[in-house]
């Protein structure tokens, strides 16, 4: 009886030691946080090739995570919850500036924000949206911030912004008439079902923006080159090619430091939003 107790106690003690932070770092999962530009399910599925590749390359578990909205994603990112983060340029700028993330690369495809209206709607000019409801993603998302800026620049008055969690829902809500227009990315619009897409019309389109940027948590600064190399190596794999092709991302490209700096105004919007939540 005593022997069994001692044996059990010893095993528990050893287990506690190995589960201590630091000691267990090698065993902890490598978390890749993906900005919730679409539904969580789609995000997880989309990044599986990368996850598998990195898991094999790193020899440790790799998991894809996201958040309920861009604000929450930003908050978690700032809390250092992601080892590698893939998010739009304005949050990347925030992460870089406020949380020390190390920018790595972005996709070759331009990232643009668009205003979508129903094809048969009477909204043709920005002022047509006055006194209407416009549907957008999280207030922290780049397309929503760009849209709000566009409305402001075009002096569209009395616009009610309705935020939804999923970008896919924006098109449906517009078609359902719940909003006069919707704000989303050009990529999302292009990924819509043709039947849905044909019933929509782009009211306005942004200039190219920095899209999703890969950022490495600063605690893995030592692994930056390795991670960078692995990502570039991944881009050469057939799985990556299929991934790029499927989501019309073309491939990776290096990120110019100025591109993130240009996102500073938008980053500030996010920072403000986070402060308001607090």
């Amino acid at each position: 009886m005593r022997f069994k107790f001692l044996l059990g106690f010893s095993i528990a003690l050893l287990s506690g030691i190995f589960n201590m932070p630091g000691a267990a770092e090698n065993q902890a999962a490598f978390r890749i946080g993906i900005a919730p530009h679409t539904s969580a399910r789609v995000i997880v599925e989309m990044y599986q090739p990368l996850r598998i590749y990195l898991e094999n390359a790193l020899g440790r578990p790799v998991e894809i995570v996201t958040a309920g909205d861009f604000t929450e994603f930003a908050r978690r990112g700032l809390q250092q919850q992601y080892d590698l983060s893939v998010t739009t340029g304005h949050q990347a700028r925030l992460f870089e500036a406020d949380a020390g993330y190390l920018p790595l690369m972005t996709y070759k495809t331009d990232f643009k924000a668009v205003f979508l209206v129903a094809s048969n709607s009477s909204y043709h000019e920005p002022r047509d949206l006055a006194n209407s409801t416009v549907i957008g993603l999280s207030p922290s998302s780049l397309v929503t911030i760009w849209g709000q800026h566009w409305l402001h620049r075009n002096a569209v008055a009395n616009v009610n912004i309705r935020y939804v969690s999923a970008s896919d829902s924006v098109a449906q809500l517009v078609l359902n008439g719940e909003g006069a227009a919707g704000m989303t990315s050009l990529a999302n619009y292009q990924n819509l079902q043709p039947a849905v897409r044909d019933r929509l019309r782009i009211l306005n389109e942004s200039l190219p923006l920095v899209g999703r940027v890969y950022l490495l948590n600063k605690r893995h600064a030592a692994m930056k080159e390795r991670i960078n190399s692995l990502l570039w190596a991944f881009a050469e794999t057939p799985e990556a090619q299929q991934y790029f092709q499927k989501y019309k991302l073309v491939g990776y490209r290096k990120l110019d430091s100025r591109e993130l700096v240009e996102m500073t105004p938008y980053a500030n919007e996010v920072r403000q939003a986070l402060k308001q939540i607090k």
């Binding site: 969580a40 996201t66 958040a67």
Partner: peptide, 9 residues
């Protein structure tokens, strides 16, 4: 559960 888990919701 996959979606809220992926979102840590």
């Amino acid at each position: 559960l996959v979606a809220p888990l992926a979102q840590s919701d």
